[in-house]
Amino acid sequence: MIVKTAVITGFGINADRELEKAFSLVGSAAERIHIQDFIESTAKIHNYHILAFPGGFSFGDHFGSGIVFANLFKKNLKTELEKFINSGKLIIGICSGFQVLVKMGVLPNFKGDWTPEVSLIHNNTGIFENSWLRVSFNKQTKCVWTKGLDEMDIPIRHGEGCFVTLSDTILDKIEKENLVALKYSDRNPNGSINNIAGITDNTGRIFGLMPHPEAFMYPENHPRWTSEKIPEGEGIKIFKNGVNYIKENFSN
């Protein structure tokens, strides 16, 4: 079967080309779709198995990264997106895409009414940073995207990636219910509580993370490829998981 992925773009999203490439490398028919085209015909999102929200600076991240894009998407596509989610399909949000998901309220969405319960705020360093670091994945998580993953080198590129929750209760729920998919393992670059780098919802099908797996598509993306043996671009394992899940659970 053909796994169709829509990489959502427009209004300042900028990591869409490589995300499209990453999905195509793992055998998905991926295409970049301008959000305006979805707003024009909202049912169009059901033509796809996977919705991917890439990184970037939608609307300049003014008054909070992802907020404006989230409002725009929520206002126009909430009903269709709920249908999309309920049909068992997948959503991934990377960096700014993660910010969009949490600000729309679809992640983690405990109350089920899209009330924002967590957020990603300015790094505690106050600066944007582009570095590679190490993350470890939570073996107990139900996140379908990180299945079988243990540890990984991966780049971060953000100024607003400090993970915070509305309350300690919500933090406890996220930890206890194993919604934490990955944590920063060698250092915490932004002050995220409990070193949280990415979370999923209780279906395990909606996944957001700050690091950029699509920027580790090839061995040569790795900062030490000239001195260490890097067998493959490990980042795409995440996308492979997503595509395989669709293959296993959908006939077309």
């Binding site: 990591a15 990453a22 944007f128 780049p155 090839y218 993306n221």
Partner: peptide, 13 residues
């Protein structure tokens, strides 16, 4: 480090 030098996935060195 405050410049994004990897967006696009094009970085080799």
């Amino acid at each position: 480090r405050q410049y994004d030098h990897e967006v696009g996935g094009i970085s080799v060195v």
